[in-house]
Computed example of a mutant assay.
Amino acid sequence: MRGVNGRFALALAAATLVASVACIAAPAQATDPQPDADFLFVGSFHMNNPGRDVHNTHADDVLSAKRQREIAEVARLIARFKPTKIMVEADTTSQAKLDQSFAQSCQGKRPLTRNETEQLGFRIACDQKLKGVVAVDWNDMGPIKDEASVDFPAAIERHGQQAQYERDKAIGKAVNDVDQHTLDTGTIGDMLLRLNSPEWLRANAQAYFRIGLYGTEEDAIGRNWDMLWYGRNLTIFNNIVRRTEPGDRVLVLYGAGHGNWLRQLATDSGKYRVEDTQRWLKDDAPTQ
């Protein structure tokens, strides 16, 4: 037994020596990166009713006099952030066309369309004397080449998950019904306050969690769909970072469903001081 104990003691001493040398050789721990830009995300409903989501809020005509007054007020509130760059939900390949439309609208030669990119983004950028807005969207399949691998409605049928899907749709409908009621009875500002509230963002995040469970371990279609969604948001965020310079005050105007991930990525990156959106959507928010 003494020989075994001796070998154990020798091995332990050697391991301790290696660990000590490693500690001496290791460089001093790097400090966390310090934020060098400000980040304000404002999630919006799609004002032109494209109808591409599972649950869609139907917007009345945002070009009506009433809605235009409300949008102008929201733009005034957000503009107090004094953005140096406004990032919008437009594909990066459309930047030249976006620049042309912005210049024409800002010069009064072209009316704003119903899209929130123009109603808020163009309006604020022109008011702040910016050169335009910045396209940062990406909506491709990426490394997922087979669309069938993300077709979760088909997986629901294959695996008899219709009852689960109906329960999930009922939850989503209940959230959307409150959204619709807020828009129908309130102002554009009321709607944006709801879409950027912790309660709405929590419900939205849970919806993606539920999608991730469709299919099975072997046929993980829901997981694949979530991977595609998360990958899209990471790509968008990378586009935002690559277009940010130290000292920038970045305003991101996007569909509200992107709010959880883009805010989280901005916070976790260490690059940004992430602003409280609701604070800037209220009239009592302090100016810069």
Rank of each mutant, 00 (worst) to 15 (best):
N49V: 08
V178R: 11
G255A: 03
P83A: 06
D276N: 12
K169C: 05
T16P: 05
F152I: 01
P33Q: 12
F45C: 02
L10Q: 14
E218I: 06
G132K: 00
L10P: 03
S149W: 02
V250D: 00
R210S: 06
N115T: 09
D219T: 08
I71V: 14
V175T: 11
I71H: 02
G6T: 12
A9S: 10
G212D: 01
Y272A: 03
G186R: 05
D268A: 14
A28F: 12
G160N: 08
L195M: 10
K129E: 15
D276G: 05
A163M: 06
I156G: 00
L120K: 01
R110F: 09
K282Y: 14
D38Q: 09
S269Q: 05
W138H: 11
I144E: 15
G43S: 03
K82N: 14
N48C: 13
V134G: 00
L192F: 13
H181F: 08
V134D: 01
M227K: 09
F8D: 09
R242N: 13
P27G: 15
N204M: 11
W261V: 10
D32L: 11
V42N: 01
K97E: 00
V134M: 02
R52K: 10
V62E: 14
T117P: 02
N56K: 04
D53M: 13
P50Y: 05
L120Q: 04
Q206W: 06
L40P: 01
V21W: 15
Q95E: 08
D32G: 07
W261F: 07
F39R: 03
L192E: 07
G231C: 12
R263V: 09
F237A: 06
V18G: 12
A285K: 00
R114K: 04
A13I: 15
N196V: 09
T57Q: 07
R279M: 10
L63S: 12
D99Q: 04
I144M: 14
M141A: 12
A65V: 14
K131E: 15
P27A: 13
G259P: 06
